[in-house]
Design a protein around this nucleic acid. Structure first.
Lengths: 194, 194
DNA sequence: GTAGCATCTTAATCTAGGTTAATCTCCTTT
DNA sequence: AAAGGAGATTAACCTAGATTAAGATGCTAC
């Protein structure tokens, strides 16, 4: 298990010296999960921010009727977890589950607070990352309001060309906010049109 | 026009010394807008992050068919703008328009970059703010996927008890992603139920 | 006070997408 | 190779919410 992807990612946004980088790495916990395992469970406190070294995960909310609603997928070089729960250390409203065997780099809340104080550049690093995540989330809100399911699916395929090979269609349907049957109908219409 | 609300807000999250606070304020531009004026227009670059000192604004996307989709409202003590456009200084996909006469405190992109370097605590300040905004946006995605319009409306009323006195119903409908007619039907059902 | 515009409501009809359930296609596992 | 089981498809029918269009209400301005 190798932290290189995380360091490469970090270096894209901030310039840490040797000592700062070492301090950062000293707080990172590496952990393997098997396919199917939960990294966060709805109702538990989300203990870590998770950087994906390898594998693929989904985060989803389970509603009172027992239906899954997928909020996002995460693959290599993505962060995942329930940020709301992590920040306030209160029970999570999301589950994060591995869809493949996964290798994660994890940061505990208290360690991250300490890191912010000792390596202020990390404030910048996480500010930039969250800004990007926020913009993407806003964009998704707009799309869900303004585009029909068919267009959202086309956009999804463009935005995540690799993910749609790795996850089953019924999960893509859940991400899009439609049923698997309706996604199937959309797909057959798209094929017919060509 | 008074910057006190902004300073109070700032002090809730970070502890700046006199000099830092003065530097911050020196970069803040105060500006009044009249009801109906645009702070950002779709297609233009978003030049400022805007803190609302007084007034009420909406940010919305206009789709190719000419339909408005309201992304958020902003009142006193909220930030608004098109963050995606602001960060990358590329054309905005959102409009921000005043629904009342407004007083805004504005930060230019280049000034903010300079502030980050000279007052690193501001990295923390904006990190925390954006984190909260991101969590709220994620929550909205989940709600739009999992809740019917009626429940989204009830939630909206709880979350923004003051806003719904200040904006017309057809805008609330747009925010919820439904037509004004359907919102009207929901409201009459709710009244009937009591 | 009344003309004019913006907003809200009601009701009839229509449609995107949901539900149910049966069939089909692959993978696994033995 | 047979038997499950997970996932995908198809089709018949159903519903939340959209569309259209007609009034109703309420401002604001002259």
């Amino acid at each position: 298990m190798d932290t290189k992807p995380l360091l490469d990612y970090l270096r894209r946004y901030v310039d840490l010296d040797q000592e700062e980088e070492a301090l950062f790495l000293s707080k990172v916990r590496l952990r393997k999960y098997l396919k199917g395992q939960y990294v966060v469970q709805q109702g538990d406190v989300c203990l870590y921010e998770n950087f994906v070294l390898s594998g693929c995960l989904k985060s989803f909310h389970m509603d009172p009727e027992g239906h899954e609603h997928i909020v996002m997928f995460a693959i290599e070089d993505w962060w995942t977890g329930d940020l709301g729960s992590f920040l306030s250390q209160t029970p999570a409203s999301l589950n994060v589950q591995c869809m493949e065997n996964c290798e994660l780099a994890q940061l505990m809340h208290s360690d991250l607070q300490e890191l912010y104080l000792r390596v202020p550049k990390l404030e910048r690093f996480f500010r930039i990352i969250i800004q990007k995540a926020y913009v993407a989330s806003q964009q998704r809100v707009v799309q869900n309001l303004s585009m029909p399911a068919r267009d959202r699916y086309l956009f999804f395929r463009k935005q995540y060309p690799r993910i749609d090979q790795r996850v089953p269609q019924y999960m893509i349907a859940s991400y899009l906010g439609i049923t698997p049957e309706f996604l199937s109908k959309i797909r057959s219409q798209l094929i017919y049109e060509q």
